[in-house]
């Protein structure tokens, strides 16, 4: 039962202070990308990318605009194929299972791989509570009971560091929140279904510096609960929040390394050119 699964994960969610960060010595691969290609019409935007995303780590993907980093991200939860005239080939494994496999539904993949977009996207017709619980409605076992939902909503909002700000107005319309709060609401909404992976597509691009800082701190904390992949054009941000960083250029993955290494001692000349500001 997926609900039991949900609950099991929620226990881990709440027990985060007890369990602490994952054992740094052990690198568990959550998502393995092998030979990924993605197309818009006849234009190839992702070329033969292979990369691992480790559990309980934040991996940042950087690169100049148009390098295919967002498209690569959208291939990880099969969002790329929702746009018309698109195509994907290659293999993406989530915990060892190919998400593009013949008997795998894109919808179930998206429940396990949450996503937050550049601009906040609260559902304008829903209250704060209903927004956070939106993903629960479409769980295969049906919507959990009201009491359970309230518990899950509170946990998700606490995880997104938003609970204290909204706990007294859960029934208010979500569009009344500030931009930064809306973005954290979207993170809470993605966390509510206890995904294994959280994809963040330039989550601070439309936010002010203070909101950006709040999101960055949140991302840093989230690694205990979930595997995070964050696409950003901001190298400082990548250095601040991520354990490892991948650099992409013209659709290709140039290199991936621990952030401290990549930003101080890159292995590829192109990476060095980029991080030292010679182009892009």
């Amino acid at each position: 039962m997926a609900l039991a699964e949900t609950d099991r994960r929620l226990v881990r969610l709440t027990g985060r202070t007890a369990s602490g960060p994952a054992d740094p010595g052990k690198e568990e691969t959550r998502v393995a990308v092998r030979g990924l290609n993605a197309f818009y019409g006849s234009t190839q935007v992702v070329r033969d990318v292979s990369v691992d995303f480790h559990a309980h780590e934040v991996t940042a993907v950087i690169g100049p605009s148009g390098c295919g980093k967002s498209t690569m991200l959208r291939c990880l939860n099969r969002m790329h194929e929702t746009a018309p005239d698109t195509r994907v080939s290659g293999c993406v494994e989530l915990d060892g299972r190919d998400i593009y496999g013949r008997d795998v539904s894109a919808i179930s993949i998206r429940r396990h791989v949450g996503m937050v977009f550049q601009r906040p996207t609260p559902f304008p017709t829903m209250s704060i509570r209903d927004n956070v619980g939106a993903g629960l409605r479409v769980l295969p076992g049906g919507m959990p009971a009201r009491g359970e939902v309230d518990v899950i909503v509170e946990r998700a909002l606490r995880s997104a560091a938003l609970w204290d700000e909204v706990k007294d107005r859960l029934s208010d319309n979500a569009t009344g929140l500030s931009g930064g709060q809306q973005q954290r609401l979207c993170i809470a909404r993605a966390l509510a279904t206890s995904p294994r992976v959280l994809l963040l597509d330039e989550p601070t691009a439309s936010l002010d510096p203070i909101s950006t800082q709040a999101i960055e701190e949140l991302v840093y904390e989230l690694r205990r609960e979930v595997t995070v992949v964050i696409v950003t054009h901001n190298m400082q941000q990548a250095a601040r929040v991520s354990d490892r960083t991948a650099f992409m250029l013209s659709g290709e993955l140039v290199e991936v390394a621990p952030s401290s290494v990549l930003f101080t001692n890159p292995g590829d000349a192109r990476t060095e050119d980029y991080i030292t500001g010679r182009f892009g």
């Binding site: 939860n77 969002m79 929702t82 919808i107 179930s108 998206r110 429940r111 949450g114 996503m115 977009f117 550049q118 601009r119 996207t121 559902f123 304008p124 939106a134 993903g135 479409v138 769980l139 979207c186 909404r189 993605a190 279904t193």
Partner: peptide
């Protein structure tokens, strides 16, 4: 209705 709203719902696992 912004496309982003539709995408947000799809990304949550909505059919």
């Amino acid at each position: 209705v912004p496309v982003s709203l539709r995408e947000a719902a799809l990304a949550l696992g909505f059919s």
